[in-house]
Design a protein around this nucleic acid. Structure first.
Lengths: 146, 146
DNA sequence: TTATTTTTTGATAATTATTCTCCATAACGA
DNA sequence: TCGTTATGGAGAATAATTATCAAAAAATAA
């Protein structure tokens, strides 16, 4: 079974356990999020769902993403000046590399920051639950004016 | 001269150079941002400015903060589900420690991530311009139910 | 100083992403 | 299959932020 299929199944099970019904629209949303190389926005997910389910409302996408967020099955990247973006393939905190020109978001293949987090916790008394690390810059394509 | 006064003067000079006029309201905003231990929101700045200038509009605060952001004299912490928060004392990217219960934001005394950034740039071809690193957790006060 | 020009202020309207409302419909356990 | 109950969809509501614009204040010129 592919990683993507495994992610879809995992999300499905988590939603079921919570008492959610798996509708075709939701399944489509899960699939898009699990594939999500591009870290889509709700708007972007909505556009892709509509290809198969033309009557879908954007509210449905918001509601499904919200449940997944609550379940820890999707990572939300917050942008107060733009649509939030979502990572359903790797829902745990990890670094992101964001092109400030085209909005592309990449996942550099790096490990987490356990030791850093631990030291910070013992220094400050905080119980650290999560973190967010994002690098911003201009991608090679945008540097070449493509 | 105190660090805070130096920050105020620096912001003032940068705004002057850009052709901005330093009004009493703006000076009050600069002072609040330079002191900003608590990483205030626009709303919070507005409340404090109103103590001295009761007729101030929140739009004035938004506009001033926007100019400072453009000049790189204030760091914006983005929260898509809440007011953004601002750091005028240390306007360069640095880690933040955020209590998810009370909203307190601390600056742990850590250095930047130059080496990390450099490696990432050479790995991906991105021209890295800035980064964002935020740790979330529950502060000691909130753990004790205060 | 006074007149003139330009920017800023402040009140409010507009915008935009997101959330809510509500009922017909669909999912799913019995 | 049936009955219960969550969901879907359309549009209204919300909330943070931004835009508008006339009046006031600051800079500049005379």
């Amino acid at each position: 079974m592919s990683d993507i299929q495994a992610r879809i199944d995992n999300m499905r099970i988590k939603m079921k356990e919570r008492g959610c019904r798996i509708t075709p629209q939701r399944l489509a949303i899960l699939a898009i999020l699990a594939e999500s190389k591009g870290h889509p926005s709700v708007e972007g997910i909505y556009e892709r769902v509509k290809a198969n389910f033309p009557t879908t409302s954007i509210a449905t996408v918001y509601k499904t993403v919200s449940v997944l967020k609550e379940l820890g099955e999707v990572l939300e990247l917050e942008f107060s000046h733009d649509h939030n973006r979502y990572d359903g393939a790797r829902p745990y905190p990890h670094p992101h590399l964001i092109c400030t020109k085209c909005g592309k978001i990449l996942d550099p293949a790096w490990s987490r920051f356990e030791d850093m987090t631990e030291r910070l916790a013992s220094d400050t008394g905080f119980k650290i639950t999560t973190h967010r690390l994002e690098f911003f810059g201009v991608c090679p394509e945008c540097q070449n004016g493509e």
